[in-house]
């Protein structure tokens, strides 16, 4: 008689009932999916990235479909920190899943101020730091592409926030393990990866780019092999937990990331395609463990055979 497997995992001080989280920017502020998903079952909800001030986002078109994936250049549209706390957080308080707030800024000071304010909000279980944004004060180079800047942002958030800090890595770098090691040294409790891959599509009829922003972030099943490779590399390089993201749509996809060394996963674009994806993945991981007579998800994390 098979026992119900133990799906619990920990990311720093963040204890989750299972390793399945939502990816920032694909699940709104949770409320958008309330009638389609049992939110209480989620390992954690990572909300749409928040900046100090509201952002209007980019002009349309903002999204384009590509083979087995999509490009987006939303432009980090969000309600801003104070409206998030006043208008969005009250709903999230009631759902019994940990809330992770993704933050983004133009400067190290922005990140520090966001983290300081969220430190005062006890319902925020963790911060995820989006370091794929350009550092406006340093010629627009993305924080996440320079180890020293990535470390400096991490240190600033770490100093201001005493709960769990995840740093979300950009794949648009030559050596992602260097960045991962830098943020680990900066005090991150975990790294999550990958953010979207920079891409482009052209309408050959009009000869115009299909996104008003010309370039955008590629996501969906198309990016999964790249993401899995990077998660595997980073998991071998760092000692902190790794959260795998990138094209995860099924339990099989999620299990691949866990085997590659991820302690948890985030489901992103799949939420658009199949709003029930997260719940199906939780059930599928449990079924996989049960079928293999495994008592705990810990038995597959990093369980890749070579």
């Amino acid at each position: 008689m098979a026992v119900i497997p133990d799906l619990r995992v920990r990311i720093g001080a963040l204890a989750m009932a299972n390793p399945v989280m939502t990816a920032s920017g694909t699940f709104g502020y949770g409320e958008e999916f309330a009638s389609l998903v049992n939110l209480a079952r989620l390992g954690a909800i990572v909300v749409k990235g928040i900046s100090l001030e509201p952002r209007a986002g980019n002009p349309p078109p903002r999204v384009a479909e590509t083979a087995c994936g999509m490009l987006n250049a939303i432009g980090l549209e969000n309600v801003g920190l104070e409206r998030f706390i006043a208008e969005k957080l009250p709903f999230l308080k009631g759902i019994h899943a940990p809330v992770v707030v993704n933050i983004l800024g133009d400067s190290i000071d922005d990140y520090q101020r966001l983290a300081s304010r969220l430190q005062m909000v006890p319902e925020v279980a963790a911060i995820e730091v989006n370091i794929s944004c350009p550092n406006v004060k340093h010629g627009g180079v993305a924080f996440g592409t320079d180890p020293a800047m990535a470390r400096a942002v991490t240190e600033a958030v770490r100093a201001a926030f005493d709960r769990t800090v995840l740093v979300k890595l950009s794949p648009n770098v030559t050596e992602i393990t260097e960045i991962a090691l830098a943020v680990e040294a900066g005090g991150a409790d975990a790294v999550s990866l990958i953010n979207t891959l920079l891409g482009m599509a052209i309408d050959i009829r009009t000869r115009r780019p299909r996104l008003a922003n010309i370039v955008g972030g590629l996501s969906g099943p198309a990016v999964k092999p790249v993401a899995l490779r990077m998660v595997w590399q980073v998991a071998r390089a760092v000692r902190i937990p790794v959260v795998g993201i990138g094209g995860i749509a099924t339990a099989e996809d999620a299990i691949e990331f866990l085997l590659a060394g991820a302690t948890a996963v985030q489901v992103g674009t799949a939420n658009f395609v199949n709003p029930r994806a997260t719940e199906e993945i939780i059930d599928g991981i449990a079924a996989y463990l049960q079928a293999g007579n495994m008592a705990s998800v810990q038995e597959i994390i990093g369980g890749l055979r070579s």
Binding site: G25, T26, F33, R62, V63
Partner: peptide, 10 residues
């Protein structure tokens, strides 16, 4: 992309 006010693409 989603129709659910999550992607903000529209």
């Amino acid at each position: 992309a989603c129709g659910l006010a999550a992607c903000l693409g529209c």
